[in-house]
Write a protein that binds this DNA or RNA. Structure first.
Length: 592
DNA sequence: CGGCTTTGACCAGCGC
DNA sequence: GCGCTGGTCAAAGCCG
């Protein structure tokens, strides 16, 4: 009988997620993110509401039903199987959960259609049994069948309740993460303000910087959302203004404008790309490269063009601004991680100190897209794939690609912002780390020592082992979300690590906040610490279950990065996502 | 046949 | 100035 699947699935959700299609998982992942982002105005208290809902799941209200459906469906599936639940069950909650279970199974088992039928039967029985003993007896089914089905239904209900509780706990975790993030961001803004004030005092000659400071020196809480985004916006233009004023000679010089282009200079890029004649079979020599690679790897040429010391901008600042990279470390057997973009390999080199060659890829999803990436295996651990992104896409992207693009853009933007907002061209790495990945800061590594700042998203190490691999110049934060080896590690392995990491992260965030801030802003976050001790074991399990589904997808690297970046972007006034959109919009409008 | 990969060569920056 | 290294180009070959 097929009905066994439901129980098996409930008991071990990992199994059901072994073979998910990447897209649904990613979608679900992003939907979760969106749920986080959507309530921008209510950002500080989005989840407690949602979470509390689960506790009172005994009361089946209409509103509750809505939320339940959204939450359940978003997390595990993308379809509208609700239609399948044709049973007129009064218990809304159980109905919603049934839908969820069905979806899980559809992922895990290769029984898309048949499972639906089976489920329908179960639902009908569930409805009857769940509501009351008033079983509609056809007279056809025997008592034995009734009893069996009832017992199964009871088990199902128990499992469903358990899943509901787990879902609620997941939401708890998310809310905690969100809250911690918000608090961290506020902290970041405050620190940035302090830094900038100090620097402003120290160097009074900073003309353009003053405008920036004025903007920054607004006020506490609402600023948090406005200030940071505005910094990005202001920084870009200011940088460009400098660039243009200094070198109005040619377009290529603009390309020297570092990652500010990512945020604001997309118009120019589009113009450049519009002019660049990529169409004639191939690119027209290197002359065009600077255009296309304005934000890319062509720093050497850029440097050459910008090298004249006559520039007013500090050289070190420019060097810092010149390039910002986002490096993703992930365990993978695959030659490179799937990030949703189309890449063309244009070179390969043997890097010093690494027996594994470094491959150079260029985005080919659009003509003239400046985004490039390097793929290289870690010399120490060849199972670790290091993918370094640079540049910003100038074209629409599929969701999976938007994920990574948002990550790179967000991280680069933060780096750029830090560079720009700091007098000496280098922002405090600690601040950057927190700014870029406040929710999973332990995964973020910022290297400010490099010629170009690099953000490293480390998805490979346990918190314990992570410390070892880092050069001292890198900032380390004691938490890592580490889907171990996406390609080869079995699903059950993943959630443990990641779940623990998530727990640790939440815990860490709370501690850090309490230590560093200790301000009244964080009072509302005392909740996490209350929850932790009692819920720790089940939290891990809960997160494990959800993580199993997510991490089973080989694109999890991109998805995770996307989630992180999307959180960043959402907090930064949609700096990244909207940025991408903004780029596209600008390009379009510019062409017209 | 078009697109992609491979691979040797070229170029520029940087350190000694 | 020289050598090393990183990054890119582009011709040749491969593949669907």
């Amino acid at each position: 009988m097929d009905k066994g699947w439901g129980l098996a699935l409930d008991c071990d959700p990992h199994i059901s997620f072994n073979k998910p299609s990447s897209a649904p998982v990613l979608d679900s992942f992003f939907k979760i993110k969106k749920n986080l982002d959507v309530p921008d105005s209510v950002k500080m208290f989005p989840f407690p509401v949602t979470v509390s809902r689960r506790d009172d799941h005994a009361s089946p209200s209409a509103a509750d039903d809505n939320r339940v459906v959204v939450g359940e469906v978003d997390f595990f599936s993308d379809s509208k199987n609700i239609a399948v639940s044709d049973n007129r069950n009064d218990d809304d909650e159980s109905k919603a959960t049934c839908v969820t279970v069905k979806k899980e199974n559809s992922y895990g088992e290769a029984a898309p259609r048949s499972s639906l039928h089976v489920n329908t039967g179960l639902h009908l029985l569930t409805a009857n049994t769940g509501s009351d003993q008033s079983t509609v007896d056809d007279g056809v089914s025997s008592d034995v069948d009734d009893k069996r089905s009832k017992s199964e239904l009871a088990q199902l209900q128990v499992e469903l309740q358990r899943m509901n509780v787990e879902n609620q706990r997941l939401r708890d975790m998310l809310s905690q993460v969100t809250n911690n993030y918000n608090a961290l961001q506020m902290h970041l803004v405050a620190l940035m303000q302090q830094q900038q004030q100090q620097q402003q005092q120290q160097q009074n000659h900073g003309t353009e910087a003053n405008q920036e400071h004025e903007v920054v020196q607004v006020k506490p809480e609402e600023k948090k959302h406005e200030v940071v985004p505005r910094q990005f916006l202001d920084l870009g233009p200011s940088a460009e203004t400098d660039e243009m004023s200094h070198s109005s000679s040619d377009e290529r010089t603009r390309s020297a404008t570092p990652l500010a282009n990512m945020e604001t200079a997309s118009v120019k890029n589009s113009a450049n790309q519009e002019n660049s004649s990529f169409r004639d079979g191939k690119r027209i020599g290197r002359e065009e490269s600077p255009d296309s690679g304005s934000q890319g790897w062509n720093h050497s040429k850029v440097q050459k063009l910008n090298s004249p010391p006559s520039k007013g901008i500090d050289q070190s600042t420019e060097a810092t601004m010149r390039k910002a990279r986002v490096s993703v470390r992930a365990r993978s057997e695959a030659p490179m991680i799937t990030d949703g973009c189309q890449w063309r390999k244009y070179g390969q080199k043997m890097a010093k100190g690494n027996p594994c060659p470094r491959a150079y890829y260029r985005c080919t999803m659009a003509v003239g897209c400046p985004v490039r990436k390097q793929v290289q295996r870690c010399a120490d651990d060849r199972t670790i794939l290091i993918t370094t992104y640079e540049g910003s896409h100038n074209h629409p992207l599929p969701p999976a690609a938007v994920a990574m693009a948002s990550t790179t853009t967000a991280a680069a933007s933060m780096l750029l912002s830090g560079s720009m907002s700091s007098a000496d061209g280098l922002m405090n790495p600690n601040l950057l780390a927190r700014a870029i990945l406040p929710c999973s800061s332990s995964m973020a590594t910022i290297s400010a020592s490099a010629p170009f700042p690099t953000v490293t998203l480390d998805l490979t190490h346990n918190p314990n082992s992570q410390q070892v691999l880092r050069p001292p110049t890198h900032l380390q934060v004691p938490f890592a979300g580490q889907p171990q080896n996406f390609a080869s590690v079995t699903a059950p392995q993943l959630p443990q690590v990641f779940g623990q990491a998530l727990y640790n992260q939440s815990k860490f965030s709370g501690l850090q906040l309490s230590q560093e801030m200790g301000s009244s802003q964080l009072h509302h976050q005392s909740q996490p610490q209350q929850l932790q001790p009692a819920q720790q074991p089940s939290l891990v399990d809960t997160v494990n279950a959800a993580t199993a589904a997510i991490t089973a997808d080989p694109n999890f690297t991109a998805a995770l990065a996307a989630a992180i970046s999307s959180i960043i972007s959402g907090a930064n006034g949609n700096a990244t996502t909207s940025n991408n959109n903004g780029n596209i919009t600008n390009n379009t409008s510019n062409r017209n």
